[in-house]
Amino acid sequence: MSINLHALMLFYEVALAGSVTEASKKLNISQPAISAQIRNFEKQYGILLFEKKGRSLVLTPFGQKLFKPTEQLFIVEEQIRSMIGDYHKHPHGKLRIAGNYLATSVLIPKWASLFKQQFPQVAVEIATVNSQAAFERLTHFEVDIAIFGDSNITNQTGHSLHCLELYSDEFVFVVSPHHQYANQQISMEQMIKEPFIMREEGSTTKKRLIEVCRAQQVNPPNIELQFDGLNETIQAVVAGYGASYVSLLVASQFIRRGELAKVDVEGVRLINKIVLCSHEPAYLEGYIRDFISIVLNNKA
């Protein structure tokens, strides 16, 4: 049984807009035409999608159930439109990469430069997001490659991805060089009494800090400042306030310049694996496989 996708689209737009009137304005289709097609759709399949409450239309329980998969359907449709558009705009290809701050600030610039030297006609688009968002963009086919520092994310069920471990990084506690704990060894109980500056929810570092606290059987520290970016987080610590828990690959350049100092916390050492994920290589365009080869040959 084929589905009337046009009527389904009208249902989705009305549900999204909250009224036939607003959907009509957006789609430039008359209100009677929209209402008639939705009624025919309901009659055809023996279902009820909307019910009136006063002057408003609300989704029935089945309408609510149908909304999410319908939304996913039209998200995929938009992704297909975007892919076709990219194909025509970029006849030699477009490489889309998502990475966390560590990847896009420390690792990817070198690889992207080497890639463009070999493939100057391929467009390259790089987005900085947290690790969870990079993974989700890949699973939704919004990017071709995701590079991030949380290999546990790849264990989420329902996704068939090809992942390669690039580095074995480490998380470290950092403070300003003028902080009382700079380059000192202290207990976890002392460390968590400090005000912390951390990334947003969904960031790898924040999740790892909570894991460390749980393993050490202490309550997580107070997060006094929270930023959407790692650079902002580090700069706040450099300025002299509080402590943070960050990737050593990122922090090392600040430590070498004397802008940050490590804190050696007794009994705490957490390894952070940096991974590159893509869909199955056999189904990738050649230039995506070439980028992966460049990464593997230039990890040092």
Rank of each mutant, 00 (worst) to 15 (best):
I153S: 05
F148S: 04
E142M: 12
H140W: 08
S151W: 08
A98R: 01
L164A: 03
E142V: 06
T128A: 07
I147T: 03
E71R: 14
H88T: 12
S105C: 10
Q156F: 08
Y87N: 10
E165Y: 01
K89M: 04
Q132K: 10
L73A: 12
M83A: 14
E165P: 13
A98N: 07
T154A: 10
L107K: 06
S113L: 12
A98H: 02
F115P: 00
D144W: 01
S160Q: 15
H92Y: 10
T154Q: 01
P91S: 04
I97G: 02
Q72V: 08
E77H: 11
E125P: 01
Q79R: 15
H92N: 14
A133Y: 03
P69G: 07
N130A: 08
I80T: 11
L138Q: 06
T128Q: 02
T154C: 08
R137Y: 11
Q79Y: 09
V124M: 05
E136Q: 12
G93R: 00
Q132Y: 12
T157C: 00
I84R: 12
I75P: 00
F141P: 00
R137W: 12
E71T: 09
I108L: 04
H92P: 01
I147D: 08
D150R: 05
H159D: 12
E78F: 09
S151D: 15
I145S: 00
F135Y: 08
I97V: 02
P91V: 03
I97Y: 04
T139Q: 08
A123D: 04
A98F: 05
E142A: 09
E77W: 07
F115G: 04
I126P: 03
N155V: 09
V129Y: 05
T139L: 08
R137D: 14
Q156C: 05
V106D: 09
I147F: 05
H88E: 15
L164I: 15
A103W: 02
P109W: 01
S82T: 15
T157G: 09
K110R: 14
G85H: 11
A123N: 04
A134H: 02
N155P: 01
L107N: 07
A112T: 11
M83P: 01
F135T: 07
T70S: 06
V129F: 04
Y101F: 13
F148M: 05
